[in-house]
């Protein structure tokens, strides 16, 4: 008997939708990362993207524990000299709420070509609306 590997054309991908309101950011992100990678499936294969699609709604209502809302700082660099920008979680949640969730999940995915492909299956929206009704996403329950 040989261990079978998933082939690209036989992977079934589902769509899930998660309501992020009042969920803790990191705890939700681990769950999302597991689903994007496909580690919840018995056919998981390390060199193939076996994951599902995840739609996150109400991304601006996500919860940060402790004082992280003011103390957690997001850094980015414009590649010009002196171009380091910093921004607290509170400001970023006001300005680009989707980015908080995206960056949390990205931190938990592998940093390679496959990981960059996986993050594309994550769709984050602030507010309760999303344009993926055609895919008939199931609700993902978070314990």
């Amino acid at each position: 008997m040989k261990t079978r590997f998933a082939r690209k054309d036989e992977i079934e991908r589902k769509w899930y939708v998660v309501d992020a309101s009042d969920l803790v950011l990191g705890r939700l992100a681990t769950k999302i990362a597991t689903y994007l990678r496909g580690k919840h499936k018995a056919i998981f294969t390390p060199n193939v993207d076996t994951g599902d699609f995840i739609v996150v709604i109400n991304a601006e209502k996500v919860r940060l524990t402790g004082k992280k809302i003011d103390q957690k700082v997001y850094y980015r660099h414009s590649n010009y000299p002196g171009g380091l920008k910093e921004e607290t979680a509170r400001r970023l949640l006001e300005r680009k709420p989707e980015r908080v969730m995206e960056s949390a999940v990205w931190g938990m995915l592998p940093k390679n070509r496959l990981g960059r492909q996986m993050i594309k299956k994550l769709k984050v929206y602030s507010g309760p609306e999303h344009p993926h009704m055609a895919q008939q996403p199931e609700t993902l329950s978070i314990q």
């Binding site: 261990t3 580690k39 919840h40 499936k41 018995a42 056919i43 998981f44 390390p46």
Partner: peptide
């Protein structure tokens, strides 16, 4: 391979 089997069994078991 052992590590991969463990990941797969875990996925199916948690389901």
């Amino acid at each position: 391979f052992r590590a991969l089997w463990i990941v797969r069994i875990n996925a199916a078991a948690r389901e």
